[in-house]
């Protein structure tokens, strides 16, 4: 693949928060490359560092207390890492934009939804405000809201409708990269189905790259091309859907799958992962998952390296040094 097709190139991202109660290590060495038009699912539980990663990409981590360090952060070949604040504001919303979890708080209650979409267009594109408003109406229709509702205020919309408006704002300037942070968590299942369907169609239409942050493996299976499983600020396993879902390698990924109730086999007892997420101010030595891992041994307390399973699939687990090691989850 040619270098041009890389939308996002992130190397060795580290984010920590220096608080009075100690240093919170939120993201600890995270690499990510994303091709044009691809969608990657960033999966993990609360506190895995998913949202912090997303904020770091937009350089929105609050500082202080946040400290962001990174070897490389390129968006479309532009170095975002050392960009001045003025250029950065041009990039945000134009080349990269974000959908937040809660549509109720992401919209400003004192402006009409039309104004809020038009604002983004007006700021980033050379056009008159009237043109921007015209475009805003088109965007609304694109996300399935009648254009005449552009003059209404956010409180006149239901949750699912608001999330559509948020999507319209995010896509208004046709960004190269869209980060969606749990975009459907606050919505009902049938509405979630509608919104996911919309996102899938729009993504195809605009060739937008997508980082989908979620805790729901079902959504990833539905909408993404690749999956990265995060635990305690690192990616522990990454690969295509096929790699991760059907040839699971990391014990944590296995644990996640086993914790889910199986819709086809209701009598099966759930197998939770024992223990709790580690305290991010005091991460375990070596592999952060080893205190909860059923396969752990002494070697897991040493720093872990990434192990390539195939071109597309890697896992951060030292247990594969042991001859014949495999996890219990069956290959499919």
């Amino acid at each position: 693949m040619s270098e041009k097709d890389i939308v996002l190139d992130l190397q060795n991202l580290r984010v920590r928060f220096e608080t009075e109660d100690g240093i919170v290590y939120a993201v600890n060495g995270l690499d990510m490359k994303l091709e044009k038009g691809k969608a990657i699912g960033l999966v993990g539980e609360t506190g895995a560092g998913k949202t912090t990663t997303a904020l770091a990409l937009l350089r929105l981590v609050p500082d202080p207390p946040g400290v962001v360090e990174c070897d490389k952060l390129e968006l479309n070949g532009q170095d975002v890492l050392n960009m001045g604040i003025h250029d950065l504001e041009k990039v945000r919303g134009k080349d990269i934009s974000m959908i937040f979890q809660d549509p109720m708080t992401a919209l400003n209650p004192v402006f009409t939804v039309g104004e809020q979409i038009a604002e983004s267009i007006f700021l980033h594109e050379k056009c008159t405000y009237a043109e921007a408003q015209q475009r805003a109406v088109e965007m609304l229709e694109l996300v399935g809201i009648p254009g005449e509702r552009a003059n209404e205020y956010p409180h006149q919309f239901s949750g699912g409708m608001k999330q559509r408006v948020v999507i319209a704002i995010a896509l208004a300037c046709h960004p190269q990269l869209l980060i969606a942070d749990e975009p459907t968590t606050a919505l009902d299942v049938t509405i979630q189905a509608q919104v996911l369907d919309l996102m899938k169609n729009l993504r195809k239409q605009y060739q937008t790259s997508l980082i989908m942050i979620t805790h729901d493996l079902g959504i990833v299976a539905d909408i993404c091309d690749e999956v990265a499983v995060m635990y305690a600020g690192t990616i522990v396993e990454k690969g295509t859907l096929e790699d991760v879902f059907n040839h699971t390698k990391h014990p944590y990924t296995e644990g996640l799958f086993n914790s889910l109730p199986n819709i086809n086999d209701r009598k099966a007892m759930l197998t939770p992962i024992k223990g709790l997420m580690p305290d991010p101010t005091n991460l375990p030595e070596g592999c952060p998952f080893h205190p909860r891992c059923p396969y752990a041994d002494e070697d897991c307390k040493k720093p872990q390296v990434v192990r390539n399973i195939s071109d597309s699939h890697y896992v951060r687990c030292g247990a594969y040094d042991r001859p014949g090691f495999h996890i219990e989850r069956k290959e499919r």
Binding site: V189, T190, Q192, A193, L196, D216, L217, G218, I219, V220, A221, D222, L241, E242, F245, N246, F257, L260, I263, R332
Partner: peptide, 8 residues
């Protein structure tokens, strides 16, 4: 049918 199923 709207439940996302974590299986390919």
């Amino acid at each position: 049918s709207a439940i996302p199923i974590p299986e390919l």
